[in-house]
Every structure is written in structure tokens, then in C-alpha cells.
Amino acid sequence: MKSWIALVARFVVILLAIFTLVSMVAADAWWVRVFDFPRLQFAIVLVVAIIALLVTKSKRLVIWLPVGLLALAFQVGQILPYFSIMPKKAVDADECAVPDRLHIASLNVLQKNTDYQATIDYVRAEDPDIFLAMENDQAWTDALSEALDADYPYSMKIPQPNTYGMAMWSRLPFAEVERNELAGGGTPSIKARIQRADGGIMTLFAVHPRPPRPGQDSGQRDAELVLLADLVRESGRPTLVVGDFNDVGWSSVTETFQRIGQLIDPRKGRGFNATFDARNPLMRWPLDHLFHTDDFGVTRFEVGEDVGSDHFPLEVELCLKPSEFAPQQEAPDLTQEAINDARDELEEASLGGAGPDAEKLTVEDDGDEHEAYAAE
């Protein structure tokens, strides 16, 4: 029996070591990028396999134990910053005056889910200032509009039948709102300039790019995030980005997005907060995100209740006090390496003419001018 357990443990260590190496390859092939997601699951399985190797005193332990430990170290290193034992990337906002508060909830409703009332009841109970819905087709848009329009007089609705519809409801007035389609593929995004109670303006971007999956590589998603980051940087401060990224925060693409946009990930240090898959407790990872400039502090960052979708809602309460919070936290630096990575993502996405067109623009890094890309 021990020999069989040891054999299985060795096989698992070898397999997950291969998966770990594949995930380190800089390629947008879907079968490479899917290994970015289950880091926590891989780490747990590796721990079990390593324990099995030790207990059974497996053959060639001197070989397989280091292999397993190296793979485990890499997997844990990717996800460790997101757990509550680690320092928080975004500063806490323990006290916040009413005019400075901003409460946002976002939810991928799952287009084929027809339990509209569960989501309506959730929004009414959560009572956010801004609610973002994704995967809304016309039926979802009609149902939510009927229920929410009276309480949320400002909205932008983009119903689509391809699971990439998007709609935003807000109690705060829009000084300006526009639809964008940064990387094609029928995946819209929203840019809203929102007027605060004190008359100030903040910018909010909503995004939902396509995921990597069989028959669909990650190029379109990666390009959209890079192009969005350029728009974020150009929009000034304060700025937020919210949505279903179909990516995890520790991926190289999302890290490049944060550096180009100079945005903070408030999830770091506040828990894993997995939003997908709500239907499978064994396969969950954080796909829904909110990133912000250093003007904001965080009052609450949580995952909401099950509302019948394959995603849980993301609930975030922020406090906007640039003079207080900006000196206490540090957004990622816009480095030449990040700009080069962004260039590479766009060039790879454009191979064969399938990706977005891009043109050069000038950005600054420590006083030096570098080239990056933005949508035409």
C-alpha cells in the first residue's frame, strides 16, 4: 500500500512541477495561461503529496522532495501577499465623513441565470452607491432597470447576447460617461466621470475582457488590460477600475496593468476573497477586482453572498482623502520594464492581425521618456 501511495505522490509532484514550469512561460496560449489560476489548489495538493513522500519514505526522496518544495515555494510565493497575515497594500480608512465615502458592488450575474429577483434583492440589501452588472443580456437589463432605475437615476447600459454585456447604475451623477471597446471582440468597457457630493470629479472604469479557454487564447484579454491601463494613467486622479478581469491579481499581465496604470490592489493583505467559481468550492480564485489610485483608503473589502450566479459579488467601501492616504501608501512604479512588458503583450496580441491596432505614445518614468501603446 505504501508503495502505491508513494508512486502516486511522485506522479503528483512531477505533474505539478511541470504545470508550475509551464505557468512561468511568457505566452498567451490558453493552455499556458490557465495555470495562472489554481495556485492555491496546486499548493494544497503539493503539500499533501510532499507529506505522503515523507511518510512513505519514497524512493529517490532526495530528488522528488526538492522538486516538490521548489514548486510549492513558487505557488505559495504567488498567492501569499493576498492573505491577511501579510501587510495590507492599501491603507485602512477607519473613519470617513459621508461626502468622502464610496460604496461599490459588482457582480457577474451569469447570463443564463434567470433568477433576477435574487440579484435585485441583493442590491437593495447591500445598497451600494454604484452597482456594476456584467453578462447582462436584454432580459437581465430590463429586469434590473425596472427595479433599480428609480433609486439609481444615473446609468450606462450595454446589453449584449454574447455574455459580455455590461451595465452600471449610480446614485452619483455622471459628469461624462462613454462606452469603449479597447481590444475588439465585442467586449465593451465603460468610462464614467463621476461627480462627488463636494463637486469634485473621480473616474471609474468598468471592464470585462474574455478569459483564456480552449479555442481562445489570452491575447485579447491581455491587450485590453494594457490599453485600459494607459487610459487610467491618462485620466488623472482619483481613479478606480472595477470588473470581472477573467484574470487573477498575481498574473504577470495584471501586475503589468497595475504598473502602467499605477494602481493599488486593495485585496492584498485582506484575504483571498475568491469570487469564482461560486458553484465549486474546490476550484475558486479571485477573478473580480477593484483597483484604485493612492487617493483612496479602504473601509471594507469583502465577497458577498451567493445570488445564483457562478460569481459571488464583490463589495468594496472606500474613502476618498488624497491628502491623508496618498502619503501612507505607494502605488507601483511605472518602470521601463513594465512598459516593455506592455509593448510585448500588445505585439503578441496583434500577431496575424487578430489583435488591436496600437500606436506609440510617450510616458514618463523617473524623468525619462519611454514608448508605450494606446488604442487608436
Rank of each mutant, 00 (worst) to 15 (best):
A6T: 04
D217L: 09
D198W: 00
M156E: 14
A375H: 13
I50W: 04
I85H: 07
V62A: 12
K57E: 07
I50T: 06
E146D: 12
E317A: 15
L102I: 05
V98W: 08
E324C: 12
G269R: 03
G200V: 02
T203Q: 03
E302V: 15
V109T: 06
I260S: 02
Y154G: 00
E330M: 13
Q258M: 15
F312A: 10
P161S: 12
K89P: 11
F174I: 01
P327H: 05
L148S: 02
P81N: 00
S23K: 07
A26W: 10
F245S: 10
A6P: 00
V47E: 05
D149T: 14
A118I: 07
N180L: 15
P286H: 08
E369W: 04
E224W: 01
Q262R: 03
F19Y: 11
N180I: 15
D100Q: 14
R179I: 08
D294S: 12
V226Y: 12
I14V: 15
E302D: 14
I85P: 05
A17W: 01
A326M: 11
I194T: 01
V13D: 07
A125N: 08
D217C: 10
I260K: 02
I339K: 04
R213I: 15
A342H: 02
A125Y: 02
N340G: 08
P211Y: 09
P66A: 02
E95V: 15
V8G: 07
A150I: 11
M166N: 06
M166Y: 01
Q329W: 05
F301S: 05
G200T: 10
S84E: 09
